[in-house]
Design a protein around this nucleic acid. Structure first.
Lengths: 261, 261
DNA sequence: GAACTGGGTCCCATAAAGTGGAACCCGCAT
DNA sequence: ATGCGGGTTCCACTTTATGGGACCCAGTTC
C-alpha cells in the first residue's frame, strides 16, 4: 500500500476532499478522520490546508462542505461541459463488456443529441454519431428520455422511418409505459432497418433523468438473449453514472442482497 | 517563504488546482509550471497525483481541466447552495468598508429574496432580512434585477409603499434605464421612509445577472456624497463576486476559443 | 461552579516523503 | 535522421510531513 510516487500528503488530502464532496451531507472532523483512517493531527493539518486554499469550508457547526473552488466551478457552467468526461469511463466499460457501439444522449429541442460515443470493436456498425441528432420516438435513447419526462414530443406527426416505426401516439404511450416498467428501452429496426439498440436512463442528484445511455448493434449480432444481457449491462453502467452525478437510489426497488448501511 | 504549517505539498497542489479551475481555458503543463513557479518534476508529480484522484483530467491535447470531482459536485446542484458561502467574504468586506447593512438578493417569483446579509456596525438599522422578500420596483436590489432582466414585473399595479415610490410603469422604465446607465440602482425612501439603499448587479459566467448586492442605511447617515461612495464600493465588490462566478469583463480583446481540433 | 468529556489544534523529535537537477523518452517537425 | 519542446522518471539530498501526546475550549453533568 505504500505509495511509491512520493505524493502521500496530496493523496491523503485528496481522499479527505473526496469524502467531503461525495458525501451526501456535511462531514464532521471525526467522521473524516475515521473515514480516511488518518491521525487526528494529520487530518487537522490537511483540512486546514484545504480550507486555506478554498477547497473546503466549514459550516456554522464546524462541519465540512466543498469550498469556494467547487462552487465557483459549478457557477461557470462547468457541469454540462464535464458530463461527457465523467461519463467516458462508463461508456468504455460498457463498450468493452458488449463489444458494441455505445452512445450517451441528451434531449435537445425535441430530438436526441448524442454527446459521447465508444465505438464497436467490430468492423460493421461503426460510424461516428457524435453531434448527430435522432428522433425521439424511434430511438432507444429517445424512448428513455420520453419515458422519464426528460423530453417532450413535438406536436408534429410521428415520422415513419421504417415499417416497424411506431407512429401512433397511443402505441407510443404504451411503449413508454413498458420502458418505465422494464427500466430500459428497446428499438428494434424502428429507426433504421437492421439496427437494434437498448438504452437506460441516467439520473441526476434529484432523481430526474438527465441523459440516456445506449448500446447499438446490427440485428445480426443482437439476438433475443443478447438484448437482455446488453440491457442489463447498460442499466448497470447507467446507474453507476447516476451515482457519480449524486443520485442515490431508494431501497424500494429490487432489493440488493448486501445492504450497505 | 517557508510554510510554517507543514503542508507545502498540499498547498502547492492546491495552487495548481486553483489555476486549472479558475483559468478561463484549459491550462497546459508548461503554463501551470510557469504560473506556479514549480519545478517541472514537481509539477508533474503533483498533477499526476491530482489526476489520479479525480481532481483534474486531461483533454485530448494533454491540457488540464477540472476533474470528475468538480463535475460531480456541479451536477449535484451544489451551485445554489454555495452562492451564499462564496459571496460571504464580499459582503463582509463591503460591510466593513461602509459600516452599513449589506444584502445579497435574487429574484424569486416576482419578488426579491434576500439570501445573505451582513449587519450594520451601527445600532440603528440592524434587523435581519434574510429570507424576507421585498417588492421589485421599490427596492435597490429589485431595480437591479429588473434593469438587467433577471426578474420580470408581475402584471399587477405597482404597489405604493411611500409617497416617493415609483408607481408609474413608464417612470419605472426610465428609472431602470438610468440604472443600466449608472451601473447601480438607488432607492431613496421608496420602500420605507428613512431608508436609502444602493445595489449593483452580480453576473454569472455568461454575463447574465444572477443576483444583486446592496448597501442599506438610514437616510440620516446616507448623504448624497456617501451614496456615490457606497455605490462605488458596492459595484466593486459585486464585480469581484462576478469574477469568482466566472464572469470575465469584456473590453479586452478576447479571442473566442474554438472547439477542439 | 468544579469536574468531566469529546472535538479539535499545537508541539516536537523522528524519519519518511518530497524535492529538483539532470537524464531520458516520445512524438513531431524539419 | 536530426533536432526540439513538452513531459516523465531517477536518485541523492534534506526539507517537510508525521503522529503521539499535551493542550485548549465549549458544552454537560453532577
Amino acid at each position: 500500500m505504500t505509495n511509491q510516487n512520493g505524493t502521500q500528503a496530496v493523496d491523503r488530502a485528496a481522499r479527505l476532499l473526496s469524502e467531503v464532496v461525495h458525501s451526501a451531507d456535511p462531514m464532521t472532523f471525526t467522521g473524516l478522520s475515521a473515514a480516511t483512517g488518518l491521525a487526528k493531527s494529520t487530518t487537522s493539518r490537511l483540512l486546514l490546508a484545504l480550507e486555506r486554499n478554498g477547497l473546503v469550508r466549514r459550516d456554522d457547526h464546524g462541519r465540512f462542505l466543498p469550498g469556494e473552488m467547487f462552487v465557483s466551478f459549478a457557477w461557470r457552467g462547468g457541469a454540462e461541459a464535464g458530463l461527457v468526461a465523467v461519463a467516458q469511463p462508463f461508456l468504455e466499460r460498457l463498450g468493452k463488456a458488449t463489444g458494441e457501439t455505445i452512445n450517451l444522449g441528451v434531449a435537445s429541442n425535441a430530438m436526441v443529441e448524442q454527446i459521447a460515443q465508444v465505438d464497436s470493436t467490430y468492423f460493421i456498425g461503426g460510424t461516428n454519431w457524435i453531434g448527430l441528432s435522432v428522433p425521439l420516438h424511434c430511438s432507444a435513447l429517445g424512448k428513455v428520455l420520453l419515458a422519464y419526462g426528460a423530453a417532450q414530443l413535438p406536436p408534429d406527426k410521428l415520422d415513419r422511418r421504417t415499417d416497424k416505426t411506431i407512429t401512433s401516439e397511443s402505441a407510443l404511450r404504451a411503449e413508454l409505459a413498458g420502458v418505465r416498467a422494464r427500466g430500459y428501452a428497446l428499438t428494434d429496426e424502428e429507426l433504421e432497418p437492421g439496427l437494434i439498440a437498448v438504452a437506460a436512463p441516467v439520473r441526476g442528484f434529484d432523481g430526474a433523468v438527465v441523459a440516456a445511455l445506449s448500446v447499438s448493434a446490427p440485428a445480426s449480432r443482437m439476438t433475443r438473449d443478447r438484448v437482455s444481457a446488453a440491457a442489463g449491462q447498460c442499466m448497470a453502467e447507467a446507474s453507476g453514472l447516476s451515482a457519480v452525478l449524486g443520485y442515490r437510489q431508494r431501497a424500494t426497488r429490487q432489493n440488493r442482497k448486501a445492504g450497505a448501511a
